[in-house]
């Protein structure tokens, strides 16, 4: 018997007399607030609590905000499909989808995101538009992430519902890389980016 057949046979034997299990009841909360102002305030609070830096701007103000946020990034990595207008005010070197050594010598990476969860301060990347491959947001020491208000949901179930296709790799990010392994003191930044900047783009100016 192959290992596969044998393991499956053992499991079937183990379950021979097991009663039928009822379908799980899932009566937990699936939705939180949908009020844009509450969502914004909650997300900003949770991101800051986990040591991300938050910058708030408007669609028109985005290039100006980004040029200020990225002022000290001499070499900037970006996904190949980053909207060009985001970098309208940026003057440093820009590398589109560099290889790993190219990422290792970049000061920062700029991407978009797929969805964000306000209650947990989490940003999810799904390799969709303006996000690129996973190494991009991992190797540089700083990640600057642009997030639009309509991408923000309150709860984890709402985020999962928006991510129905896990065929592409997903990365959930909640604050910068961290460890508490030494005497339980939280230290920001071990192997992933040590700085996380979130640029939150709200509604257009009145």
């Amino acid at each position: 018997m192959s290992a596969r057949e044998e393991v499956l046979a053992r499991l079937r034997t183990a379950l021979r007399d097991a009663p039928v299990e009822p379908e799980p009841v899932r009566d937990y909360r699936r939705e939180g607030t949908t009020d844009p102002e509450e969502l914004r305030a909650l997300l900003v609070d949770r991101l800051r609590d986990y040591k991300a830096t938050v910058h708030e701007t408007t669609p028109d103000g985005l290039p100006t905000t980004l040029s200020a946020v990225l002022a000290d990034a001499t070499v900037l990595a970006v996904p190949a499909d980053l909207p060009v207008e985001w970098l309208a005010g940026h003057t440093g070197e820009v590398r589109a989808d560099p290889d790993v050594p190219g990422l290792d010598t970049s000061d920062a990476v700029l991407t978009g995101a797929a969805v964000a969860i306000a209650e947990t301060g989490t940003i999810v990347l799904d390799a969709g538009p303006a996000q690129g491959r996973r190494a991009l947001t991992l190797v540089p020491d700083r990640h600057v992430c642009v997030l639009f208000a309509e991408q923000v949901v309150a709860t984890v179930p709402e985020a999962i519902a928006r991510l129905r296709s896990p065929a592409s790799p997903l990365t959930w990010i909640s604050g910068p890389s961290a460890t508490s392994d030494i005497e339980l003191r939280r230290v920001e930044g071990v192997h992933g980016p040590r700085r996380l900047d979130v640029v939150l783009v709200g509604a257009a100016d009145g």
Binding site: R46, Y50, I117, E119, T120, G121, T122, R134, P166, A167, S168, P169, L170, T171, W172, I173, S174, G175, P176, S177, A178, S180, G192
Partner: peptide, 13 residues
Amino acid sequence: TGERMNPYTSMWT
């Protein structure tokens, strides 16, 4: 870890 969410979760298929 007593966090609302851990810093990184990776999912691959």
